[in-house]
Design a binder for these strands. Structure first.
Lengths: 337, 337
DNA sequence: ACTTAGCACTTAGGCGTGTTGAGTGCTAAT
DNA sequence: ATTAGCACTCAACACGCCTAAGTGCTAAGT
């Protein structure tokens, strides 16, 4: 009962099950994979694997299917990341290079990834913690109503309309803008909170109240870039893969729609040596995702923002991991260029 | 065989079927609704209704269910829009008033509507056709790379990073901004295309190439505000209502994800006298939506942008229509205030 | 100490058969 | 125009049966 063959059996079970969606038995196994032993021997191995909690039999006389633990072992020790085909690489490259906007890049990436993997793709907008303030704009919309715009040096723009405590003129607003800009320009966005007060105290007393409002808006906008957005694509794939289980699809869709949930989920994924992070079924902290796996990885200069996919635990891990990794790499390259 | 009773029978069938999800027979009908006649009479009426194509029997010995045409008649002539409960009205009001941002308003509205109706809610960002150019900003990110920002007088901001055909200085860029602004400020966004050329020709020859690029970006951004964004919520509701039909949910999700499709769908909805527009099942131009109905209405000052819901043809039209209408009204009020 | 053949045992799932119940259409009487 | 009555249809459910796949175990073989 060699150790290596047992792992080989596990691999075979996982691969066959992912491919056929049906529990796989000892006989079918020796037929399809040329392990040099008989089905009886495989049965013994399987019993051992079941003992270890790596596989289970759905009912007495059916084949075995991998448990979450089994998938975990498969991912960690058995499988190799399958490289993408040249055609796929080319497709990724040309598609992503055609994008102009940051929004466009994100949109294309997430669609691409969902098509590549046939799963639900998720992408988190780049984090801007390190971004610095490039520009401020105040636009008077009404006598006591202004649009506040913050532009970061990485191209991200945030804006908000606020009401002002008093009527102001265009000139007044322009002066305030200059004052704020002189003080804040070039500083990291997260440092703005500590700096606006200084500016507020410098302006003439009659503008102080207005300046205070504007400063608060600036801080809020700067910090709003922290609470990242999530983009989804390919939710229809859920229907395909979970067809047998239309009961679970509802909760999954709910979770997907809750940006907060998805953000936490992604932020908790620490990528490992292979460059991607995998969460399998019950490893997920959310009950509604107990039958789904998440594969994600960081991208961008500091790999802080995440991109990945979500699908049923029964998925083709090697190729999916490869796709996620490849897309993340191309994405990083595009953003850097 | 009075005309009015036949319509009454249709109404009863629709209401019972929506409520029970099961084909409704003549006997059950006379029991639940106190029509003063026997089941045999109802059977005759039903035969007539079936003759007119308003109801069908799924198989020989089952009750009848409404056809799309039946729902249409029900919506147009039989049903009254059911007013919302005071509690619901209060909920709408307090929830929407708590929003600060435009994004926040949209987000809250669409979530609210999906919870209110238990359907998938859709909202289109306000259209800006009438909007005028308020401000332009060029920000130099690298020697030949600039961020172009367009600000409209209704608070909408669009930005894009573009590459420039030559290296420019901050001063050059600033001058170009001034030139463009002088020419374009206050003009409607959709008129920009015809105006940028004039500016390009006024600038000094060495800046012409750069100006051309910038002008093109301005036009693109101004027109980008036309292609509106769509926000979704409550897709999980699809799983609930379409539980029997997990086959159709995939295509529906695909359609929902395609903003282009949804935008066309919404733009084609012309609201009628009752203030909402209803598309029932096969009335929809898209095959994948053949079993879903859409209820939408315009909102905002000119009712150009749309908000609405999408769900199975078997839905509670009166209350859902009421909810859509109410939410749209509150939304208009919030945006105007 | 593994491996293997053989065998008894288990069980989901497919298939035919009856049975039931809801619902219809038609006819004849009111 | 309505209604009671009746014969008829058919989905849905329940049984019962059988088969195929697959297992665990034992005993024999290497």
């Amino acid at each position: 009962m060699s150790e290596v063959r047992r792992l080989e059996v596990l691999r075979a079970i996982v691969e066959d099950y992912v491919h056929s969606r049906e529990p796989v038995g000892s006989k079918a196994l020796v037929e399809r994979h040329h392990l040099g032993v008989s089905s009886a021997t495989i049965r013994n191995d399987m019993a051992a694997l079941e003992e270890e909690g790596l596989i289970v039999a759905p009912h007495t006389s059916a084949g075995r299917i991998p448990t979450d633990k089994g998938y975990r072992l498969f991912v960690d020790r058995i499988s190799d990341v399958k490289p993408l085909s040249p055609a796929e690489r080319r497709a990724i490259q040309t598609l992503l290079e055609g994008a102009d906007d940051l929004d466009d890049v994100m949109d294309r990436t997430v669609r691409l990834l969902s098509q590549l993997t046939h799963q639900v793709a998720v992408i988190q907008y780049p984090q801007l913690g390190r971004a610095r303030l490039r520009h401020i704009e105040f636009v008077l919309l009404a006598p006591a109503r202004a649009l506040v715009v913050v532009i970061a040096d990485n191209g991200k723009v945030e804006q908000q309309v606020i009401g002002l405590p008093a009527e102001v003129t265009d000139q007044q607003l322009s002066d305030l803008r200059t004052a704020f800009l002189a003080e804040l320009s070039g500083h990291p966005l997260e440092a703005l909170r500590g700096l606006v007060d200084g500016t507020v105290q410098q302006v003439r007393p009659e503008s102080a109240a207005v300046a205070r409002e504007l400063g608060a808006a600036l801080v809020k906008l700067a910090e709003a870039t922290h609470e990242e957005r999530i983009l989804l694509a390919g939710t229809a794939n859920l229907a395909r893969s979970t067809m047998d289980f239309p009961l679970t699809i509802g909760p999954i869709l709910e979770a997907l729609e809750e940006q907060v949930v998805m953000l936490r989920l992604l932020s908790e994924m620490q990528q490992d040596a292979r460059g991607v992070s995998v969460r399998i079924g019950s490893e997920n902290p959310y009950g509604s995702l107990a039958e789904t796996s998440v594969i994600a990885t960081g991208y961008g200069p500091d790999a802080l923002a995440k991109v990945g996919i979500l699908g049923p635990t029964r998925m083709d891990y090697p190729t999916t991991m490869a796709a996620v990794r490849a897309v993340a790499r191309y994405l990083s390259r595009i953003l850097a260029g």
